[in-house]
Design a protein around this nucleic acid. Structure first.
Length: 225
DNA sequence: CGACCGATCGTCT
DNA sequence: GACGATCGGTCGA
């Protein structure tokens, strides 16, 4: 993969609501790998290819903010329509970006955890106060949100808009390069902490967390469907 | 390498 | 009043 400085925006297709409306949140999380997350705020395009996601299965998932069907002012966004952005503040510092999936009132969400920077790297550098791009520019959910200008202000925003969306540029990923592992930082979730709900493109150098080592972290090559 | 630690604040109890 | 779906730094082996 290389960085293309001039993108043909007419050649990449915004993902539609059908994609987000499906009932398998893990399936959608997997399908988001290789897609491009785009923001265009104040006419400034920044984008990156998604290389790491985590599924949060709502009411039945102890790791989810909506576990047990909990509804609060913050989590209410997760009960909205498929294709809504759910962004919340973590540790008082980091803004974590999620995609709401499934039907209204079913609070499924997918955390986008890492991108390969694609477009607008100069703007990402400005936003993050860095001087040159390195692997950490969009590695990790907090870092990528900062680079793309995402904050809790955009929680509730529609991903069917022109300012914030996910697109398909026809990029094909090899099924053998998709690996699932337990999610990161959810030890509080008891037995659900070990569910294989994190999906990564294993060759990417932009992955967060520890390096994938075949077994210790429970990494598994996906079976074919 | 790995373990640990401080930053920092909105959200929920 | 306690606690994070994190990050970047330090310290010691």
């Amino acid at each position: 993969m290389h960085i293309n400085p001039s993108i043909q925006h007419n050649l990449i297709k915004k993902i539609d609501q059908e994609f987000y409306l499906r009932s398998s949140v893990t399936r959608i999380a997997r399908d988001l790998l290789g897609k491009i997350l785009v923001t265009c705020f104040n006419g400034q395009y920044t984008s990156g290819r998604i290389v790491e996601t985590e599924a949060y299965a709502g009411a039945t998932d102890k790791a989810s903010h909506a576990y047990g069907g909990r509804r609060t002012a913050r989590t209410e966004i997760m009960y909205q329509d498929a294709g809504t952005a759910y962004i919340y503040l973590c540790y008082g510092i980091h803004h974590l970006f999620n995609v709401v999936t499934n039907k209204k009132d079913i609070p499924h969400a997918i955390l986008i955890r890492a991108l390969e920077p694609f477009e607008g790297i100069d703007i990402m550098l400005q936003r993050t106060g860095r001087t040159k791009p390195d692997d950490s520019l969009t590695k990790g959910p907090g870092n990528l949100s900062r680079a793309l200008g995402l904050s809790t202000n955009y929680s509730g925003y529609s991903l069917l808009s022109d300012e914030l969306y996910i697109a398909d540029d026809g990029f094909q990923i090899n099924k053998n390069s998709i690996v699932s592992t337990p999610r990161i930082g959810v030890d509080y979730a008891g037995e659900d902490a070990s569910l294989p709900y994190r999906f990564v493109l294993k060759e990417s150098k932009y992955l967060s967390g520890k390096k994938l080592s075949s077994n210790r972290d429970g990494a598994k090559i996906l079976d074919r469907e």
